[in-house]
Amino acid sequence: MRKLKIIEHISLDGVIQHTADEGDFPYSDWIAPYRTPAGLAAVLAAQGESFDLLLGRRTYDIWSDSWANASGSPMADGINAATKYVVTHRPESLEWGPFEGVGSGIVEGISRIKSKDGPDLILWGSSTLTSTLLEHAIADEILLVVYPILLGTGKRFFAEGTPARSLELVSTKAMPSGIVLITYKAAGPLKTG
């Protein structure tokens, strides 16, 4: 069974939104001032040499606009080579591939994909899908790339209603830019008392 890893760029106050795709989000591409070769190397190492992607439809559309014609870098080449498993009601309109629709039963579809042989699955973006993965204990690992900023508005990583869960710290890595990479693995239900 392959592992499903969530990777998110996140502000200290939990915002993962990067574009004004819906509404009036004022801080597009807030990660740009922090991009460094060392940070890119750390993210590439976390992804691994070979991976497939799990994407919500909105993230798939945004990424297909920016990554489909990009090439010549390890990040672009890896993303373009990955099979994109897309949660969508309109799989017939997918064009950027290789791709496969997850199907109408999201939890069952993702569990089926995880059970296949292949590289690890990585979920980037897709804030709605993240909550579903956490609620149903489908995600194996979470890598938060935490930026030393507060945004105050925007889509949050942990949506209202995300179920209580325990996570176990796997590793941390601080970058000179102020970014901290924190990796957790799922550790079951919330422990209290």
Rank of each mutant, 00 (worst) to 15 (best):
R156E: 13
K116H: 01
Y60I: 00
L169W: 08
D117T: 09
E100G: 05
L150V: 11
R2W: 13
A174N: 04
G48A: 13
S177N: 12
I182L: 10
G78E: 04
G105L: 02
L53H: 03
L190I: 12
Q17N: 11
E8D: 06
S93I: 03
A186H: 12
D65Y: 14
L12V: 03
D61S: 14
A82E: 02
S28V: 15
I16M: 11
K173D: 14
G39L: 11
I142E: 04
K84R: 09
V43R: 04
E100P: 01
D13R: 02
K191I: 03
Y60S: 05
R2C: 14
L167W: 14
L150M: 14
H136A: 03
T153L: 11
V107G: 01
N69T: 15
G23Q: 10
P189L: 07
V87W: 03
T36G: 07
K114P: 02
A41F: 07
I106T: 09
L4Y: 12
K3R: 15
D13M: 04
G48L: 06
D52L: 03
A137S: 13
P148H: 07
W63L: 14
I149V: 12
W67E: 03
L129R: 00
D117Q: 13
F158S: 01
P33R: 13
V170A: 10
G72N: 09
S177F: 15
G188E: 00
V145P: 00
N80C: 11
S66C: 11
H18G: 14
V107M: 05
W67C: 07
V15P: 01
K5G: 09
G72E: 10
G188W: 08
T128S: 13
S73F: 10
T59V: 02
P33G: 14
L143S: 03
I138S: 09
K191G: 12
L121P: 05
P91T: 04
D120M: 11
M1A: 15
G23I: 05
S93E: 05
L169I: 04
P33N: 14
I16G: 01
D140I: 08
G118M: 14
Y27L: 12
R35E: 14
G39K: 08
I122L: 09
L143A: 11
T88P: 02
F51I: 07
G23H: 09
G103S: 06
T128P: 00
I106Q: 00
F51S: 11
